[in-house]
Write a protein that binds this DNA or RNA. Structure first.
Length: 221
DNA sequence: GACCAGGCACATC
DNA sequence: GATGTGCATGGT
């Protein structure tokens, strides 16, 4: 069994299902993916609640709302000027390419969708992959800071490896299963929050193991 | 007051 | 290609 599958089994046994992504609709999930960039989820939820209270939680309404007003609604999520532009870019794409309905993306291939998402200003690999996996149910593995930290601290990959290199390891050693990818990423975030804070640990010391639930036995099995 | 939080674009070398 | 920096609120 691969190291990644063993880690998954340990995490699932320890924490159980995480019921991700926290969002009511695919569109809300996509918005959350943008708003949570480098940001605590509780702050994102406040911004999403603002949008809901202002009746702005649909592509049509967001397409109409003035930029200044949108920025104020997004304020609690931090980087609100940046995120306002990014949300507007995403909405513009959705309206222009998919008639303002994320459901119209369903028939399109995953590889094409990923290219289109990455072309949108403010959507990088993690945000694109989060939308693909959690909003559109595609077998795409999301790599985030916690994923890198947890794997690095278990000597699976170097922290300096690229996004694609981390992702490749998951594709090479796990089946392409949406439910598995969904749960695994959520479990890595859960574990990272509990055990893999950036300090006082040093990224340069790969021998440090700070995730006790993940420690393997001496035979490496 | 310091640190942290589910990135990304852009400038510079 | 690698490295550094700006973006910002809110909780601990």
């Amino acid at each position: 069994m691969s190291i990644l599958m063993r880690i998954y089994d340990k995490l699932y046994a320890a924490f159980g299902p995480q019921h991700w992504w926290p969002g009511r609709t695919p569109f809300e999930i996509a918005l959350g993916a943008i708003l949570t960039q480098n940001t605590n989820w509780e702050n994102v939820q406040k911004a999403i609640n603002n949008l809901r209270d202002a009746d702005c939680l649909t592509p049509d309404r967001l397409y109409e709302v003035p930029q200044m007003q949108l920025a104020q609604l997004l304020r609690p999520s931090g980087y609100f000027n940046v995120k306002t532009r990014r949300v507007m870019a995403f909405i513009g794409f959705l309206v222009k390419s998919y008639d303002g309905d994320i459901e119209n993306m369903r028939p399109v291939s995953t590889s094409l969708l990923r290219k289109q998402l990455l072309d949108i200003h403010g959507i990088g690999p993690e945000t694109a992959d989060s939308i693909l996996l959690y909003a559109l149910d595609r077998p795409v593995f999301v790599i985030d800071t916690y994923t890198k930290r947890v794997l690095f601290r278990h000597n699976v990959l170097d922290f300096k490896c690229t996004y694609d290199e981390f992702q490749r390891l998951f594709y090479d050693t796990l089946p392409g299963d949406v439910a598995l990818y969904n749960e695994y990423h959520a479990l890595l975030v859960k574990t990272g929050k509990l055990y893999c804070k950036p300090k006082p640990l040093c990224y340069g010391n790969s021998s440090i193991i700070e995730c006790p639930l993940l420690e393997m036995d001496s035979s490496g099995k």
